[in-house]
Amino acid sequence: MSSQVLSLSRTWISDTNEISFPAVLSEGKTITVDDIDLNIPQAQSIAIAFQEAYKSHPPSFVISTVLVLIGLADILMFLESSIYFFHPYIALGLMVTGIGMLSTMYVANK
């Protein structure tokens, strides 16, 4: 666009778009820095995702965690002393179900 239509196009751009330039109206004092790192450390990111999963679906989160723990405890008991409450295959099934539920919640809240 040439300078002849500069004022017109300025209106045209702001009128036809939902997100204006700049993205936000300046209502406060702008702070300037040289650089920042926006990334969240991986471990913290995983912890946050699980925290969010718990907050959004507390019953599912608790049930899946309990399933994993029961399954794990049963398998460990079987390995240690050949005693079990559930057959190890059932315990494994419980664990897989629990892990599956937790993974789904993790991905949804990632």
Binding site: V24, G28, T30, I31, V33, D34, I36
Partner: peptide
């Protein structure tokens, strides 16, 4: 009334 905004300008990025 005039809102409260935090604005940060990052020159490097």
């Amino acid at each position: 009334p005039f809102g409260e905004n935090f604005e940060l300008r990052v020159n490097g990025k």
